[in-house]
Design a protein around this nucleic acid. Structure first.
Lengths: 212, 212
DNA sequence: CCTAATCTGCAAACGGTGTTCGCAGTTTAA
DNA sequence: TTAAACTGCGAACACCGTTTGCAGATTAGG
C-alpha cells in the first residue's frame, strides 16, 4: 500500500508524445455505463475498450490494472453524494440523511456494493465523504477514533441494507431439523417495519458515540 | 432459485458405476485448506483438483460449478459455530456470545467474509445458525420479521468488523481539501475502545428488538 | 450369465479473463 | 535535428470455469 504508486497521485500522462485519443474520465464513464446496465462482472477490459472503440491493451496506457479502474469508478460514483447537508440540524438527523443518500446511491449503482467493499485506497471523493461526516459529528463529545468507527459502521450498514434488497427469501425449511425457523416462517408476517433502516442507523450511532 | 436444483438436495452419486475415488467432503476439505492458506482467489478448480491428485474436469462429477463448491465450503465452515449457547442466560448476552463466536470464525477463515457475502441458497448449517438464534430470541416480544432482520443485521455487522480488521489506515490526507479529516488524523488517538464490537451488537439488538 | 445402461476418471479443447510485449508511427524536449 | 518519450494496436501468454469425448469399470434387469 505505497501511496506513491496509487492511482490517485499518478499523472494521467506525460508531456511528450501524441495527444491521447481517450482519457481516464471517458474510460471510467464507459465502465460505469456498462456496470449500471450489466453488473460489475460485465466490466471487462475488453468490453470497456470495445465501448470506446479500441482494444483492451490500449487501456493500460491510462490505467495500470482493472483494480485501478474499479477504484476510479468507486470514487466517481461517490461524487454523486454531493451536496452534503449543513451542520445546522441535530447531528443524528444529518447523519441519517447522509446514510439515506448513500443507500439511494447504492440502489442507483448496484455494482457499487461490490466495488466499494473491495479493499482499496480511498479516492478524493471518499475522503470528502469522511470529512463531511466528521464535520457533522463535530458537536459530539467523544474520541476521534470512535467517530471514525461510527462512520465506518454506518457506511457498512448501508451496504448491508443494499445487499439485502437483492436477497432471496427462505423456503422449504425442514420443521424437524429447524423448529424455530420453520415456526417463524409459518406464522403470518405482520405489518412490515418500514423504519428498519432508520432504527439501525440511529441505534448504532447512539451506541457508538455515547460520550466518553 | 429453484430449490430442486440446489446442491443441498442433489444426491452425491447414483447407484451404478464404479465407486468414486473422491467425495464432496474431501473436495470441500481440500478447498478449505487452500482458502485458509492462500485466500479464496486461490481456490480454483485446477488447484483444488491438483491438491487431490486429479484433474479439474473430474470435480464436475461431484459438483456442478465452482459456486456450488463455495456454497459447500461456507456451510462446512458454519458447522464450526457449534455448540450454541443455552437459552438460560439473558438473551442479549447469549446473542453476543454467538456474534463473538462468529467473529472468531471469520478470523480463522478470512475467506468466509467473501464466501458468505455472496448470494447463495443457505445450507443446513446456516439454517441451524438461524434456528438457534431464533431460539435465543424466543423470550423477546416482537414480530418474527423483526427478529429475522435483527439476526441478519448482527450477522452483517460481524462481517463488517471482520473486514475492517484487514483494512489499511488512512494516510497523507490534504489538510486543505479535507480539514476535519486531517485534524482528526493529526490528533493523537486516545486509548482504543476494546468494547466497540460489543457496543455495536448490543445497541443494534436493543434498537431493532424493542417491543412492538 | 449377459447385455445394456450408467457411472468414473482423464485429457483435450473452448471461450473467456487480465495483462504483457513488440512494433510502427507521432510528438516534443533538448 | 536528434533522441527520448509517448500513442495505438494486435498478437501472445497464462490463467480461469466449464464442456466434451472416450476408455474402462460397475451394476441392474432379464
Amino acid at each position: 500500500m505505497r501511496v506513491g504508486s496509487s492511482i490517485w497521485n499518478r499523472p494521467e500522462r506525460g508531456t511528450r508524445g501524441p495527444a491521447p485519443g481517450h482519457s481516464r474520465d471517458a474510460i471510467v464513464a464507459a465502465a460505469v455505463v456498462l456496470a449500471d446496465a450489466e453488473g460489475l462482472a460485465a466490466v471487462s477490459m475488453r468490453a470497456v475498450a470495445g465501448a470506446l472503440g479500441t482494444g483492451a491493451g490500449s487501456l493500460y496506457r491510462y490505467l495500470s490494472s482493472r483494480d485501478d479502474l474499479l477504484d476510479l469508478m468507486t470514487d466517481a460514483a461517490m461524487a454523486e453524494m454531493r451536496p452534503y447537508p449543513d451542520g445546522d440540524r441535530p447531528w443524528p438527523d444529518a447523519m441519517l440523511t447522509v446514510a439515506r443518500r448513500q443507500l439511494e446511491l447504492y440502489r442507483r449503482h448496484r455494482w457499487l456494493i461490490d466495488a466499494a467493499t473491495r479493499p482499496a485506497a480511498p479516492g478524493p471523493n471518499v475522503l470528502e465523504y469522511f470529512d463531511h461526516c466528521l464535520r457533522l459529528l463535530a458537536p459530539v463529545d467523544c474520541p476521534d477514533a470512535a467517530k471514525f468507527e461510527a462512520i465506518a459502521m454506518v457506511t457498512g450498514v448501508v451496504t448491508l441494507f443494499a445487499r439485502s434488497e437483492g436477497a432471496y427469501p427462505l423456503d422449504g425449511v425442514d420443521p424437524v431439523a429447524h423448529p424455530h425457523l420453520a415456526a417463524a416462517l409459518s406464522r403470518p408476517s405482520s405489518a412490515p417495519r418500514t423504519d428498519l433502516f432508520d432504527r439501525s442507523v440511529r441505534s448504532l450511532l447512539s451506541g457508538l458515540l455515547a460520550p466518553g
